[in-house]
């Protein structure tokens, strides 16, 4: 059972990464692309790490894999804010439904 979940989770994770890239390609402005990359890719990474942690035989190896997740989250949340703020200061207007 755990083996099956451990094998399946990285595949699910890959789908989230793909969704993040899809959002990057399809969303209309930098702000919404930011949401897609930050949230979907981080969930993808979380699934991959959890899957591999379940596959690992050693508890310390599992925990080390899981330690990567908060670091990656800290990185992307800090970078996300930096990008959004930069974009606002550059005068990038958020895309709106009614505007062309």
């Amino acid at each position: 059972m755990i083996d099956a979940i451990g094998t399946l989770l990285p595949i699910v994770g890959a789908l989230f990464y793909a969704a993040g890239t899809l959002g990057l390609l399809r969303f209309p402005d930098v702000y919404s692309r930011l949401h897609a990359l930050a949230k979907a890719d981080n969930l993808g990474l979380g699934c991959v790490l959890l899957g591999l942690a379940l596959q690992a035989e050693d508890l310390a190896v599992s925990l080390k894999l899981l330690l990567i997740w908060p670091l990656a989250l800290a990185a992307s949340s800090a970078v996300s804010y930096a990008i959004a703020r930069r974009a606002a200061h550059l005068g990038v207007k958020p895309w709106r439904r009614d505007s062309p």
Binding site: L24, V30, L34, L37, L45, I83
Partner: peptide
């Protein structure tokens, strides 16, 4: 700002 998105990709 779009090009800064590349910085996110390497981390994740």
């Amino acid at each position: 700002a779009d090009r800064m998105l590349m910085a996110l990709l390497f981390g994740s």
